[in-house]
């Protein structure tokens, strides 16, 4: 993770320098655009960061409970909804999901959890609305939820 950060920053710095030598006005313009979007997006991003902390802090220890008393369709949907609301790094999510599989959780519920967790972000909704608009955000998240359910069900059938 640390390495990617260094590579990204280094790469963009190089691009910025090349751009500066090629055309100063354009480069200054680019920086202006960057500064403006930083100002525009910061409050929303700070909100999202706080929301992630709250949701994770309040609910992370409830996940195991959810998989423990898994019952039928309702349990499955609950897990999918939970995955949509929750936000956690995949480095943590996969080991956790793996341990649920070992403890006897069904493949489809584990798949539902991971797929909704990665694809749908209730907490990042404010940012998505701000950048892509309301309509797009609603469509994308609703459809993502539906395909997460389909993928998870199919996983249960295939494996």
């Amino acid at each position: 993770m640390q390495n990617t950060t260094i590579i990204i920053n280094g790469l963009i710095l190089v691009l910025l320098i090349i751009s500066f030598f090629k055309n100063r006005t354009k480069t200054l313009n680019a920086l202006k655009i960057a500064g403006k979007s930083l100002l525009k997006l910061s409050p929303t991003i700070l909100s999202v960061i706080l929301l992630i902390g709250i949701i994770y802090g309040l609910f992370s220890d409830k996940i195991a409970l959810l998989f423990g008393q898994e019952n039928g369709v309702i349990g499955f949907i609950t897990i999918a909804v939970f995955g949509s609301v929750m936000h956690m790094p995949s480095l943590l999510a996969f080991p956790l999901a793996g341990s649920f599989l070992l403890e006897g959780a069904s493949i489809s519920s584990v798949a539902a959890f991971i797929t909704t967790l990665t694809m749908i972000g209730i907490v990042t909704l404010p940012l998505e609305v701000k950048t892509m608009g309301k309509k797009f955000t609603i469509y994308r998240n609703v459809f993502s939820f539906i395909i997460a359910i389909i993928i998870a069900t199919l996983m249960g059938v295939i494996l």
Binding site: I12, L15, L16, S19, K26, T27, N29, A30, L31, K32, I33, A34, G35, S37, L38
Partner: peptide, 10 residues
């Protein structure tokens, strides 16, 4: 964001 800025001018 700087990358986005460069993207939009170049």
């Amino acid at each position: 964001l700087i990358l986005m800025g460069l993207f939009s001018v170049w």
